[in-house]
Amino acid sequence: MNKPDIAQLNDANFDEWIKTSEKPVLVDFWAEWCGPCKMIAPILEQIAVEEEARVGIAKLNVDNSLEVARRYEVMSIPTLILFKNGQVAKRIVGAMPKSSLMRELNPHLS
C-alpha cells in the first residue's frame, strides 16, 4: 500500500487549507485519548490512498486546535466533516466501518 497523504491541520493553517484545496477535504476531529478515534484512523488511511482522486483526508487534533473545533460545534469525537469549496457538505459523528463511511460520503464526491 502507498503511504497515505494526510494533512495535519491546526488553528493556524485550517482556513487556508480548506479554502485552497481543489478537491473535497474530509477533516477528522480527533484526540489521543479517544478510543473510537484510534479505531477509525486506519480506515481513513485506507481511504486516503484508495480515494485519492476524489477526496483529501486531513486530521485536526482538538487538544491543540480547540478554536476550529468550537467554530464547527464539535462536541463529540471522532467527528468527520467533509468540506467542499470551503463549505461544510457533510458531518458524520462517531466511528463506523469503512463501508458505512463510504456510503455516507459517496453522494458528496464526484
Partner: peptide, 13 residues
C-alpha cells in the same frame, strides 16, 4: 454528538 453522549472519555473534554 450534540449534547447527549455515550462516551464520557471521548466527549468530556
Amino acid at each position: 454528538g450534540h449534547g447527549v453522549s455515550t462516551c464520557a472519555t471521548c466527549d468530556g473534554f
